[in-house]
Design a binder for these strands. Structure first.
Length: 340
DNA sequence: TACTCGTGGGC
DNA sequence: TGCCCAAGAGT
C-alpha cells in the first residue's frame, strides 16, 4: 500500500493537470473552498472540458459565495443553461445561501459538508480533502475504475461498491489526501481510461493485479443497463412583434425551473399529447429535433402557433436575443430549428 | 435499492 | 450511427 501511495503522489507532482480550480501540487497555498465546491458540483457527471468555460464565467460574475448567494435565482439558472442536471444549479443557490448565513465559511469537515444541499458522499469527501487537507476517502467513477483494476475486483458495479470503498480507504494516505484524490482522478482521466488504458505509462502498472491478469481493459464490469425508450413531444413557437413566448418549467422534474418553449407535457414515461397547456391555433410545422437524455430519447416537433385565448403566463423574449435566454440545450436546438 | 436527472465527445 | 461514458445527488 505504501508504495502505491508514494508512487502515485510522485507521479502527480510531475504530471498533475493544470486546471483553473486547482492549486498545483507542492504549492503551500490552500485552495479557496468556494472554488473547490463550485468546481466539484459542476464536475458531477460532467467532463472537465465542458466545465471550464462555465467555471470561468461563474467565478468572474460571482467571485465569492456571498455574491452567489445574493444573486437572482433566474440569473444563476440562466448561467447554468447548457451544462445539464439542473437540480445542481438549484441546489447550488440553496447551498450558497446556507454558507452565506454562516458568514461565508464552508464547514471544514466531511460530516458537516455532507449536510449541504447538493453535496453528497463524493463531494463532501472531495472538498474536505482538497480544500481543508482532511483525510477523506474520495470515490468517484475514476477511483472506482482505478481501484477495480489495481485489485482486480471482478464483481460488477454497483455491487462491488463496498469492496471498492474499503480498498480505497486502505490506500488513502493520512497526509496529502487531497492531492492523492486528485492524483487518482488524473490517473483515471489520462492513463487508466475506461477504454484502452495506457498501462505502459502507468506508475502503478507493475503492482496492478488486473494488468498482471491481462484484464485491465475489461474492468470495472458493470450490470447491463436497460434500453432507452423513445418519446415524442411537441413544442410551440409563438411569435408576436419580433418576440417569442417563453415559459418557466416547473421547479422539479425535467429541466426544472428552466426557461423553455411551451410544450405538450412530454416526459420520460409518456409521449406528449400534442396540445399546449393553453388555447392555441396550430400552424405550420417548423421542424423537429431529436435529443438524447440519460434514460430516454425525445423527438420534439416544433410547431408554429398563435394564441387563441387568454394571455398565458410567460415572457415575450426578443427573438434576436434568443441566445441569451438561458434555454437548456433541447430548447435552444428547437429554437434554432424554428429560425432556420 | 433503483430510478430520475443533461449534455457533449469518442469511437 | 448508436452506445458508452463523465469529479453524483436526491428520492
Amino acid at each position: 500500500m505504501a508504495d502505491v501511495r508514494e508512487r502515485l503522489l510522485a507521479w502527480y507532482d510531475e504530471h498533475a493537470r493544470v486546471l483553473p480550480w486547482r492549486v498545483p501540487p507542492n504549492n503551500r497555498a490552500t485552495p479557496d473552498p468556494y472554488r473547490v465546491w463550485l468546481s466539484e458540483v459542476m464536475l458531477q457527471q460532467t467532463t472537465v472540458a465542458a466545465v471550464k468555460d462555465y467555471f470561468a464565467r461563474f467565478t468572474e460574475r460571482w467571485p465569492t459565495v456571498a455574491e452567489l448567494a445574493a444573486a437572482e435565482e433566474a440569473d444563476v439558472l440562466s448561467a447554468w443553461a447548457g451544462l445539464g442536471y439542473y437540480a445542481r444549479a438549484r441546489n447550488l443557490i440553496a447551498c450558497a445561501r446556507v454558507v452565506a448565513d454562516r458568514g461565508g465559511l464552508f464547514p471544514d469537515s466531511e460530516e458537516d459538508l455532507r449536510e449541504l444541499p447538493g453535496v453528497g458522499a463524493y463531494t463532501s469527501a472531495a472538498i474536505a480533502a482538497i480544500a481543508f487537507d482532511r483525510r477523506a476517502v474520495v470515490v468517484d467513477a475514476n477511483v472506482e475504475r482505478v481501484i477495480s483494476r489495481l485489485f482486480a475486483i471482478t464483481e460488477p458495479l454497483p455491487t462491488s461498491r463496498p469492496a471498492i470503498r474499503e480498498a480505497a480507504d486502505r490506500v488513502t494516505p493520512e497526509r496529502r489526501a487531497g492531492d492523492f484524490a486528485q492524483a487518482m482522478m488524473d490517473l483515471g482521466a489520462t492513463i487508466c481510461t475506461s477504454r484502452e488504458p495506457r498501462c505502459l505509462l502507468c506508475p502503478l502498472s507493475d503492482v496492478c493485479e488486473a494488468r498482471a491478469m491481462g484484464i485491465a481493459g475489461d474492468l470495472p464490469r458493470k450490470i447491463a443497463k436497460k434500453a432507452r425508450p423513445a418519446r415524442t413531444g411537441t413544442a410551440f413557437w409563438i411569435e408576436r412583434d419580433s418576440h417569442v413566448l417563453l415559459v418557466q418549467r416547473p421547479g422539479k422534474g425535467m429541466l426544472g425551473g428552466m426557461r423553455a418553449l411551451p410544450d405538450d407535457g412530454w416526459n420520460a414515461r409518456a409521449d406528449g399529447n400534442g396540445k399546449a397547456e393553453f388555447a392555441v391555433r396550430q400552424g405550420d410545422p417548423l421542424g423537429a429535433v431529436t435529443h438524447g437524455f440519460t434514460h430516454f430519447t425525445l423527438t420534439l416537433s416544433v410547431l408554429r402557433a398563435e394564441l387563441a385565448g387568454s394571455e398565458p403566463e410567460g415572457e415575450w423574449w426578443p427573438i434576436s436575443q434568443i441566445g441569451e435566454a438561458g434555454l437548456p440545450t433541447l430548447f435552444a436546438r428547437a429554437a434554432q430549428t424554428a429560425l432556420a
